[in-house]
Design a protein around this nucleic acid. Structure first.
Length: 559
RNA sequence: UGGGGUGUAGCCAAGUGGCCUAAGGCACCGGAUUUUGAUUCCGGCAUUCGGAGGUUCGAAUCCUCCCACCCCAGCCA
């Protein structure tokens, strides 16, 4: 489901070339998350790529959990990941776990030992690091490097049998301690971990490392193209080494692409975990999080996320995408599918003095200005209404064409009202407006020579529901929260990223929202009911604001 | 001279030696329509492709040198 007609990216070009060379008759990919956290929008890029390719080439894509480190992983994450992939609209050909392959992987390890290409090392971690050398200096061989096949087999089987404590021995590939590629300096392929695994329980106390597991799992699954991010570029030599030194059923091709980064955000699982665990946000699905579950709860649609990914493209260039790209994708998707409604976020009472008390005027309004098929609904106009505080200014600047003392404005779908009195409380705050309406402006009538530019939304004070609305802003106040290496990234968290409004007045139709419907609150933005809503008190999340040229003018005016 | 990568507008990104005096999107700046300052619509926005040389009738695309930035020294993935 890659609904964008993007130019053929370099990965698809490589696949096309392989197909032209008759290397494969079917394309197989995989999405290989480690279940140690929730998926974020960066993962969506990989998902979109891998599943999109499988779909378009009529191939297969496996959802495979790279679960080789039982200390960090958890079943909770497995469930969440499955749900997120499904929500994004992708279907896996099958679901697998690297742990399914533990027996086979163990056989491959033994094969390497027998070939003299792997050995049990007994250096402690610290010493092993010293022996590894540095980026510029070669490493040196471990004194255990030349153990006999028999000795290695004996030790390895005793490692597996649980005879040794964690860290006592490791199994290493025997490659080249002098290599300029550090990954080839006899990488560890098995380590001892006396820790129950979420799937295999206590069956194993030795666990294979990523580099060994990943490529061989790909081969076991018949993957043709193993797509991963740039930081694994250096690992490709090792990926290929394992595949060519073991009797693997096939040799997948690893191709790397750049990760997705968003400004005013962080995209590292480690940091997102920290935000959750330290209570900076309200969980993995906090609507401010760049996680799939956060975006979902916020009200983003899966198609908006997919379109966004499609619009940023796949390359090898390091990139930071502007948040406005994502917002654009959401607005584009939501504009056509969202029914319109009126909601007042910061209520200011407005009394229309020449409107008869106790009466109400029903007005039939369209649910969508450009799509008659979305139908109409009735709203009621009454003597007392609420308007938004932001639509009134006591001393308005020239370009502000909303309400002010002795000014007039049109009530959306209704008539023009003129404000002739402003009532304040003891603190000097405006608490009520007294207005009169002009009967000649009913139903959109515009008397000759009269131009009323301002139109504001409103809600009948009598016919409305109380609600809460959560307004979200960017999570970080710095475009790059990691730029200043002298401070923790959490120091650039935006203190105003969440604003909760508890006294909102919404039109009746918003009191019982339709399932899975995003609404446009006219003139304000797109909103989505939060799961914390109750039937008596709805709670809406603001997904994104509408484009707001007044906000732009106002900002320039103030600066 | 450790290795591996990347450099096209503020942000993404097409372009794969001649139709490129360089697509498209976002952002930005106009202007039209509009009972959402929304949507939609029109127009503007790189004589230039990190820099300098070179090859060629012709270079963003090929060669050489240089510069900048990113990744790698977990028994993490």
């Amino acid at each position: 489901m890659s609904d964008n007609l993007e130019p053929v990216n370099f990965i698809r070009q490589a696949i096309n070339a392989d197909l032209a060379d008759k290397k494969h008759d079917k394309i197989v990919t995989r999405f290989p998350p480690e279940p140690n956290g929730y998926l974020h929008i960066g993962h969506a890029k990989s998902i979109w790529l891998n599943f999109g390719i499988a779909d378009d080439y009529e191939g297969e894509c496996t959802l495979r959990f790279d679960d080789t480190n039982p200390i960090k992983e958890d079943e909770e994450f497995v469930t969440a990941i499955e749900e997120d992939v499904r929500w994004l609209g992708f279907k896996w050909s099958r679901i697998a776990h690297a742990s399914d392959y533990f027996p086979k992987l163990h056989e491959f390890a033994i094969e390497l030992i027998h070939k003299g290409l792997a050995y049990v090392d007994s250096l402690d971690m610290e010493t092993m690091r010293e022996y590894r050398g540095t980026l510029k200096e070669p490493g040196k061989n471990s004194p255990y490097r030349d153990r006999s096949v028999e000795e290695n087999m004996d030790l390895f089987s005793r490692m597996k049998a649980g005879e040794f404590a964690d860290g006592k021995h490791v199994l290493r590939a025997k490659i080249d301690m002098q290599s300029s590629n550090i990954n080839l300096r006899d990488p560890v392929i098995y380590r001892i971990r006396h820790h129950a695994h979420q799937r295999t329980g206590d069956a194993w106390c030795i666990y294979p490392m990523y580099d060994f597991t990943h490529g061989l799992s790909d081969a076991i699954e018949g993957v043709t193209h193993s797509l991963c991010t740039l930081e694994f570029e250096d690992h490709r030599a090792l990926y290929d080494w394992f595949l060519s030194h073991v009797s693997a059923p096939c040799h997948p091709r690893q191709i790397e692409f750049s990760r997705l980064n968003l400004n005013y955000s962080v995209m590292s699982k480690r940091m997102l975990t920290q935000l959750v665990n330290n209570g900076h946000v309200d969980g993995w699905d906090d609507p401010r999080m760049p996680t799939i579950s956060g975006l979902r709860r916020r009200g983003f649609t899966a198609s908006a996320v997919r379109n966004f990914i499609g619009s940023v493209g796949i390359t090898k260039k390091a990139n930071v995408i502007e948040m406005s790209m994502l917002e654009n994708a959401v607005r584009e998707d939501l504009d056509s599918i969202s029914p319109r409604a009126m909601g007042v976020l910061k209520p200011l009472k407005l009394v229309i003095e020449n409107f008869p008390e106790g009466e109400s005027e029903p007005i039939e309004v369209a649910n969508h200005p450009n799509d008659p098929s979305m139908g109409t609904r009735n709203i009621l106009l009454t003597r007392e209404i609420y308007i938004d505080h932001d639509d009134f200014m006591e001393d308005p600047p020239k370009k502000f064409f909303r309400l002010g003392p002795d000014r007039e404005v049109r009530l959306r779908y209704g008539f023009v009202v003129h404000c002739h009195k402003v009532i304040k409380n003891d603190a000097g705050e405006v608490i009520e407006l007294r207005c009169t309406y002009d009967p000649n402006t009913r139903h959109g009538q515009q008397p000759e020579g009269r131009k009323v530019k301002g139109i504001i939304h409103w809600v009948s004070a009598e016919h409305c529901v109380d609600a809460s609305v959560r307004l979200y802003d960017r999570l970080f106040q710095e475009a790059n929260p990691l730029a200043d290496k002298t401070k923790a990234f959490t120091e650039s968290l935006n203190p105003h990223s969440l604003q909760v409004l508890t006294n909102c007045k919404l039109e009746l139709s918003l009191g019982s929202p339709s399932v899975d419907t995003r609404y446009q609150f006219e003139r304000l933005g797109y909103f989505y009911p939060d799961i914390d809503s109750s039937s008596s008190h709805p709670i809406y999340n603001r997904i994104v604001t509408l484009r707001d040229s007044w906000a732009k003018i106002d900002k320039q005016r103030k600066s």
